[in-house]
Every structure is written in C-alpha cells, then in structure tokens.
Design a protein around this nucleic acid. Structure first.
Lengths: 272, 272
DNA sequence: ACCTGAACACCGTTCAAGT
DNA sequence: ACCTGAACACCGTTCAAGT
C-alpha cells in the first residue's frame, strides 16, 4: 500500500471496498470516542510502554517547550523508545492531540466557592478555566477545533448543567449557555496567545498604530487611540464574561425557563 | 550562518549584537504592522511577481484544498515560480498567514440593515461574519492567535465602535464589547470546524455517547441525552449571541455609559 | 537586481525485519 | 507479541550561483 502521507488531494477513497469497517471516524467526534471504548483492550496490554506514559511525556513536552516541539520524534526521545513504537498506542498525531486536550482540561474539579450564587460560581469557574489555560499556553494553542466529548470535558458539561439548570434554565438552554461560555473563554485565551502576555511594549505599540491610522477611514480609532490601547485582555474578558452572564440571567426571567419553548430566539435581537 | 530551522530549543539569541535592529517583531503584533509600513518599498518593485499575487494564490489554495495544502511549495507551484522566490515577498510562512488572515476578513463592508436598532445591526453583522467564516473553513482554521490590527480588521473595529458608542457605551466599553463579540464569533466557528458541518450522523452518535455515560458521574448528561444531542452549533451561537447583546444593553442602562467609570466590573458577577 | 537549483534540517507515517 | 531500523514522502528555510 504505502499511501501518500498527507491526503491533500481531497480524500480519494472514503471507503475501502476490501475491508468492511466504515472509514475510521475522525478523532474527537462522538463516533470516535464510542468506537475507542468498544474496542476492548487490543492495545496497551500492560506492557512497558503505556498510553498514559505517552500522554504524560507529550504533556510535559507541550508545557515546557511549546506546541512546535510536540513531535512524535521528541515524544519518543523522551520515552527512550523509537517513534514507530508510538503508533502502537495512538493511530496518528491527531489522535494523540485529541487525547492530550481532554487530559489537559481537568481543572474544573477545583473547589467551587460555596457561598456565591450561580452567577458568581459560573464567573469563578470561567476565570479558573482561563487562568489554567493562560498558565499552559501550549494547551491553549492546540485546543481549537476538536470537540469536547472526552471524559474531562464532559465533567465540565455536567458541572455547568447542574449550575444552570439549578438556576432555572431549561436543559437545552443550560447546555447552550455552558457551550457559549466555554467558547468565549477559549476564544479569549486564543487571542491573547501571540502577545507575550502583558508585554508593556505592546500597549505602546498599539497606541502608536492606532494614532497613525488614516483619520478619514478610522476616525474613532484615531480619536480614542490612547483609551483603546489601554484595554487589556483581562479587561475584555471580564466585560464579555459579565455580559454573557447578565444575558443568561435575563433568559431565566423571561418565559420558558423550565420548559423548552425556544424563547431564546428573537428575544433581544429584534431581528427585523 | 544557516541557523536551525525551528527554534524549538527556546529562542537562543533574542538580540544579535552584530546588527542593530532589535530582533524582528512577531507577525501580527502592532510593532510588526508599524515596522512593515515604515519600510518604504524595498520589496515589491512592481516586478512580475507581486505580494498580491502571492496572497491571491495562497487564498485560492486555502479555499479549495484546505489549510493542510497551504504550503510554500504549493503556492510556488500555483504561481509557476520556485519556492525560494516567495521569500522575497514574505519573511516566512507565519508572516504570509498573518497577511492572508487580514485579507480574508474583508466582509464587514457588506450592507448593514438600516432600519434595525443597534442591537439588530450588531446581531446581523455577527451572523454575517460567522457565515463568511463557515463558508471559508480554511480561513477559520488559521484564524487563531494572531492579533486583529490589520487594515481589514481595523475596519471592523471602527464599524463596531461606531455602533456601540452610538448606542451609548463609553469608548472603552465599546471596544471591549466589540472584541468580546468577535472572540465569540470566531470561537464558535472554531468549535464547529471538525464536525463536517451538520452531518446528520453526528447528532445520532452524540446521543449514543451521552446515553452510554456512567449515570453516577454524569447524571444530567445521561438524563437529558436526547435533548443535548439535538442542540446544534447554530443554536449555541444564537443563544450566546443573544446573551452577549442583552448584557451589552444592560451595560448601557447602568451608570457610567458616557463616562468611563469601570462600572462594568463586579456589576452582575457578585464576586464575593 | 532578481530568480533558481540544490541543499539542510526537520516533519508524520509505514513496514519488513528482528527478538 | 512487541519493538526497531530504515525508508518514504513530505515540510520551511537558506544560499551560492546564475542571468
């Protein structure tokens, strides 16, 4: 066989007529997680090299040397084995990254503030999650795209559902609210990723850039250059987080909180 | 010289003592955009091969064959030149991607709905942006990390500032609101990226996965499996968008809308 | 002044061959 | 049954040499 390495030419044969299994599912999808659980223990027969060991060194590599160093060769070197051995525990690099991501999300288990109301708890959890990602930029940089269906991700979903349903949202709205919140947290970390995190020079450069724009094309940017340049990633996050939670609270006070009535659509947007 | 290709070992020498210029700025930062404008026209002397041509074919490649095919070799092949020629117009691949991203964001120029209020206009723009990204998954998959300081990104900022300041927010809050909204839109697209976009099978697989979870660990997920599996990416987006805009409107009705009083912090979160 | 050929130092992945 | 050596088909980037 020896197929070409990267399928850049448009996925030639989605189904192999020889074999009967239907074109292995993409890592991270529900089908992939399910298939992985049903396949009993073909791999990882408590040998010297385990999947956990692979993920451990991969995680250490990601944390210490960044995403560019997360290489099959480097992982193998860290384990003292050859790169080919890794493929006995993992189908390919994407699968490894998918497993790594779910493993890196295990932070929601930290103690929630018990005396706060549900909005306070949600805000606290969101900040905790964000801080965790900011402390592990490698994880954040690899977090996109993949679904959140792994055990640790699901623990976060369970926690959020508990919180939002307890507050009075329908299961459907609670799930959407939890997803939106997670999306916002991860997105906000992504945007602060390339900036060397609160480099004092960056604010000055942004002020210079805003000031030197064409006033005809960007009047408000030029006019408020100094103010805009001072807004930090933390400020943005807090304001967006607050707005989201305010919106969720408003959702509860409108009809359709315990039943599912699709009351959330066209409620505040005045779609005309 | 012939330095190692990837600086995986921790950025050895941040400053070269020979030359006097201070360690070229990272593509996408304010310093980078500024430096790029001040360097007059050393490159691109209206030769046969122009930067625009490079970006055009890169864009076409990204759209038709995806991010995995966005390769210096493929771009060169599309242009009929050698890969080394590309480096006369672009410092490296990251710079090319940065320029490509800003170019791919030129969608805000589309007609805004004139009879809607500011919330309606913001929602409309957000949906427009999201649809644009969903139609160009390659762009979305490459969108992370880099700052939004290029001309097309700034046009979006200018538009949003106009909208939110006109609605009554302070410049500071207007900027943070615009950034939060953009973060949410991009993030929500990122999360729907790996799913083959509304594959009917995916919903079924998610239902199976939710149902088969351990009820002791994930009681709410098991209990509401069918409901959760039916929530689509569109639903999530609409609910989150609505919440954000509701939150922004609440910000206006609280004290500190025309002045900057930091009234947005600790307002609804009841941080204890 | 511009472009090229050819190389360098990497990648992910596969597979026959060893033990 | 497990692991390895060696290869394949790619990468981004550089640079002396051509014109």
């Amino acid at each position: 066989m020896h197929e070409p390495t990267t399928g850049a030419a448009g996925e030639p044969s989605p189904e192999d007529p020889r074999k009967n299994r239907p074109a292995e599912p993409k890592p991270g999808t529900a089908a992939w997680w399910l298939a992985r659980e049903n396949e009993p223990a073909r791999r990882r027969r408590r040998r010297s090299l385990t999947l956990d060991a692979v993920l451990d060194t991969a995680m250490a590599l990601l944390d210490t040397r960044g995403v560019a160093a997360l290489t099959m060769r480097n992982i193998a070197e860290g384990l003292g084995c050859t790169q080919a051995s890794l493929y006995r525990h993992v189908r390919n690099r994407e699968e490894l990254v998918t497993l790594l991501i779910d493993r890196a999300i295990s932070v929601a288990s930290s103690a929630p503030p018990d005396d706060a109301d549900w909005v306070g708890k949600a805000a606290w959890s969101a900040r905790l999650f964000r801080d965790h990602l900011l402390r592990h930029p490698g994880v954040a940089s690899v977090l996109r795209g993949t679904e959140r269906l792994g055990p640790n991700s699901l623990a976060g979903v369970q926690y959020s559902l508990d919180l939002f349903i307890g507050a009075g949202l329908s299961p459907r709205l609670a799930y959407a609210a939890a997803s939106s919140l997670a999306t916002f947290v991860i997105g906000s970390v992504h945007f602060n990723l390339g900036l060397d995190a609160s480099d004092p020079k960056e604010s000055r450069h942004r002020r210079l850039l805003y000031r030197s724009r064409d006033p005809a094309a960007f009047p408000l940017i030029v006019q408020h250059a100094d103010t805009l340049a001072e807004v930090s990633g933390d400020d943005e996050f807090e304001i967006g987080l607050n707005a989201l939670l305010t919106g969720f609270r408003a959702l509860i006070q409108s009809p359709g909180n315990t039943r599912d009535q699709d009351a959330e659509r066209g409620e505040a947007c005045s779609r005309s």
